[in-house]
Design a protein around this nucleic acid. Sequence first.
DNA 1: CGACATTCGATTGTCGACAAAATTTTTGTC
DNA 2: GACAAAAATTTTGTCGACAATCGAATGTCG
Lengths: 222, 222
Amino acid sequence: MLDITRSTLAQQIARSIAEAIVHGQLQPGERLNEIELGHRFGTSRAPIREATYILEREGVVVRHPRRGVFVRDYTIKELKDLYDATYRLEELALTRVAAEATDPQLGRLHAIADQMGHAAKKRDIPTYIGLVEAMFQEVFRIAGNEVLQDFYAQMRSRLKPFRFMSLSHPDSLSHSVAEYQAILAALEARDLPGALAELRRKETRAVTHLLEAARERGASAA
Amino acid sequence: MLDITRSTLAQQIARSIAEAIVHGQLQPGERLNEIELGHRFGTSRAPIREATYILEREGVVVRHPRRGVFVRDYTIKELKDLYDATYRLEELALTRVAAEATDPQLGRLHAIADQMGHAAKKRDIPTYIGLVEAMFQEVFRIAGNEVLQDFYAQMRSRLKPFRFMSLSHPDSLSHSVAEYQAILAALEARDLPGALAELRRKETRAVTHLLEAARERGASAA
DNA sequence: CGACATTCGATTGTCGACAAAATTTTTGTC
DNA sequence: GACAAAAATTTTGTCGACAATCGAATGTCG
């Protein structure tokens, strides 16, 4: 039952701000000034205010009552927790996929993986990122638990501002593709332990990668 | 770093509405009329509006743009998903507790379990519920991942409106205590498989229990 | 010179009113 | 009497203004 209602001003502004955060125009820790944003978007403060609530629900922003809302900034510990939680959820989903996925469903995953390969060859990072999202969305759809799917989506949106770091290294694209293909191959062989092992490998690589980037960039001290 | 700022009007109203939902004064599916609530609380619509955003973030309410916000109503499928997700998170937490908990930490859990026993004997349900919350909070604190802890807290708050059902049966209190003690005993023996097995037993009982109650009460059709 | 109280500017919280939708009621027609 | 179109009503979305509060800058005293 999707809501095809034209989106409200607040929602559009929320998307706009979220994009600004992802693209780094709004830095982690920075405060969102309602008046200033109102001027920037040519609206009163009301829709801005509601947009901040939307963003807060998505976890990309924190609100300190009577003080303001701030672009969420993560300590090293929090980043680790976020990654950890993300991968635990992926494990849960993969476990179900390995157990219950039908062949056509696996076929869909395979198709996405192929497209990822093409995008990676062309170094088309935006499409690549989109395909990764699509892949996981499909995985969680197969897993069949909407609550988990929602949580997972929320985590990915929280990690988005850090995503560009992960893919900054020149070879990481092809590495990344290989990892996904390895996991998928294990799934198609109905080899759950294998799939989980590949996932863990991917996780450790991703985490070390991200943490060193974050340290350089100086995410607030742990 | 807890925020000891005096709570804002919107927050108080949010708590108040949440309570009304838990106590059934606001039924699942019912619409929250901003004007009416404004009169009831003697405020303008602004804080009411913000309260609904807070409640939406907590997942107890859904918003349909330009149509209103409604007390969240769950289909049978969604209830199952919610329970499933809850127990998957508990498994993750227990796994870590079994692996990493220090003896004093286990001692704290044991102390809480003892208090639960006393409360159950006295049939003091409010304290009992509070202790269950405390128990899980402690478990997740030991597990050490704040992100997972937050998600878990959110799920419990979503399930709150259904909690009174679970404990309506006369013997369920003592059953419940026994279940927690069994899990804890396994943990203290560092027997992870045993603890997980007990947890699953608890889960199946809880789910069948809740689902039959929900069916009677007629949660919206699956 | 430093710690603490005070003032002032800036910003969030709340209000009442208007605009834009959505829902309900009424009206007109077959 | 039932259905469709139109009017009326209700309700959400947005606005601009005022009040309460916070943080920084300033001033005062030890």
